[in-house]
Amino acid sequence: MGAITMTTGCGHRTDSRTAALETPDFLSHICDAPTLRLLGAAYRAQTPSEASQETLIRLLRPRVTAQTIKADYANGDIITLKGWVLSRTEARQCALFSLDSN
């Protein structure tokens, strides 16, 4: 599993701000795009109320930083998807990525 290329699999890339939101920066260095999509799909299935692109963008705005994600971990706002212990924010990023790259 190498670092992903964010253009991989994206049929209809949204604007650059959305692209930034859907990039789980740390995770993208250790997971490939199919894995991120898998995690994103798992999050959407597990959290149907956040399954739409609009909702995910709203929840991730205005921006996501490494500190946002670290804060999730520090606050225990974590979720386990396919065994991955992820911050809520990066799980949402994966979900958005999985929608945007379908």
Binding site: F26, L27, I30, A66, I69, K70, D72, Y73, A74, G76, I78, T80, K82, G83, W84, V85, L86, S87
Partner: peptide, 23 residues
């Protein structure tokens, strides 16, 4: 492992995946 996963995430040094039998 959930705790270790949380702490490596908080420190920003790694991510952890539980094996299937713990999922």
């Amino acid at each position: 492992y959930e705790l270790i996963g949380q702490e490596v995430g908080r420190a920003g040094v790694a991510r952890l995946q539980l094996m299937e039998h713990l999922q």
